[in-house]
Design a protein around this nucleic acid. Structure first.
Lengths: 261, 261
DNA sequence: GCTTGACCCTTCCCTTGCGTCATGCTCAAA
DNA sequence: TTTGAGCATGACGCAAGGGAAGGGTCAAGC
């Protein structure tokens, strides 16, 4: 079976020798053999794998992600690939829109710069205002898919303040009751514990609108709590978010419900 | 005069304390004062500078480039800013178009993936073909501005092979004559040397079409010679590019012309 | 048999823009 | 005086390799 030394192989794949070294060290693509003097010897199958790597790299995946995909069992491969395509498409779309916003800002600034005798600092101020406007967009957006965030905003727009306050009130009540149950050492496995779970879940559904994408966004957001900015919104969210011990109680009670069918 | 400690100042600017530390170490933004115990004390002017930094960062400049802009004499500032706007616009435009190409490729692949029972490797092959097509675009493109590259391609399309060969012939003749002058130890300062310079420059103008953007692209490309890929095009370019000693002769002869007016 | 030039190996530092500790000092309130 | 918040410096980490140092291997030509 024909084998290739590293330089030849690099030319076949259109990459540099150094990149192949790198992929080898990451165990992303190790040559099929080594000569007895330590030379890397690549074979035809290695070329196939390299091509798959290059495709995924082109799509914008990190090398770590690529390794994850290529080392997963082959049966799941096709499905994972289509999922990956969808996800990368969304991510790249977002990046492109970001670039578009910057480009539009530059174009506006260039128009301003046409005016004769426009001092430099005016130009900076003009751009700065646009920058700040763009950064003022709700920071929670980044945790949700575009459609999920839209759904959330639509909901907030169509909810009356009374309904909103009411939901908040019921949520605080649930948390207070969980706290009380904890204080009284009520078992999560008891009838009371399971009743609390039911209330918790029903309320949760009100917030997620039964939309799994929103639920996923919530999860991502709370996962990343340490990175929330330091504003009013974050303070409010932190205030109404269940404490770890509440979560633990909830989790155990859910397990109990499952056991009891 | 009111001063701010680092955390307060960071909030004013909407950046992190760590970023300010970083800018200080790079001498990009050092606080106006230090307290006698070493605390950084920022003043109002520092805020102005920080805002300018953030604007330029938003435009996609590196911190090094930002430092270069902000430390240049104020008089040239406004002009540099408009130039920078134009350059960044071009660069970001290119990046956006790159993302667009990837997105289109993904969309094509998703269409293919609709077909039932499409095995995984077919999908990879589909994408790979598109990737290779896109990478097959002339590598010289990256050295030229978009308009300059277009102008070059248009010229090549409207030049007959005979004209092309003729220009190449005259270029080789100039180089040969320079070589001969070097062999005969002819001074660059002599009439012969200056005549050679005139021929060299006139021929150069034929290649740059008198377009300074093209000339700039040429310069960038030859600067980066060590990164040219290893193909026929590069071999040809290397073959017709003047050797260092030729360049040196040319340079001295130009100096001589300048001295003699 | 020896040299030469082209390849090959591993190892280490460099890049960007900070995030994230680790360790120790300072300052103001209780 | 203790304590907690805020400050300082210094060092390491990341992603995807680039580049160079220092040294071994191989085939060809003398």
């Amino acid at each position: 079976m024909k084998t290739f030394r590293i330089q030849e192989f690099a030319k076949l794949g259109g990459v540099t020798v150094r990149a192949l070294h790198h992929y080898d060290r990451l165990k992303l693509l190790s040559p099929a053999h080594r000569s007895d003097r330590g030379y890397r010897l690549y074979c035809h199958e290695d070329l196939g794998r390299l091509e798959r790597i290059l495709v995924l790299r082109f799509l914008g995946l990190s090398l770590r992600e690529i390794a994850g995909m290529l080392n997963s069992p082959a049966t799941a491969g096709a499905e994972r690939l289509t999922v990956t395509l969808a996800r990368q498409r969304a991510a790249l779309h977002e990046r492109r829109d970001g670039l578009d916003r910057v480009l539009r800002t530059i174009e506006h600034a260039q128009l301003r710069a046409q005016e004769p005798a426009e001092p430099e600092w005016v130009l900076y101020q003009t751009i700065l205002k646009e920058v700040q406007m763009q950064e003022a967009t709700d920071w929670r957006q980044k945790y949700y898919s575009a459609s999920a965030f839209e759904a959330l905003q639509l909901q907030r727009a169509t909810t009356t303040p009374e309904q909103w306050a009411d939901a908040g009130e019921r949520w605080r009540a649930v948390l207070a009751d969980v706290q009380s149950a904890l204080d009284r050492q009520v078992s999560p496995d008891s009838a009371e514990g399971r009743a609390l779970v039911a209330r918790w879940i029903r309320l949760g559904d009100e917030f997620t609108l039964g939309n799994p994408e929103i639920a996923e966004g919530h999860r991502r957001m709370y996962q990343d709590e340490s990175h929330w900015p330091d504003d009013e919104m974050a303070a409010h969210l932190r205030a109404v978010s269940p404490k770890p011990e509440h979560r633990a109680f909830f989790h155990q009670a859910v397990q109990a419900c499952l056991r009891h069918g």
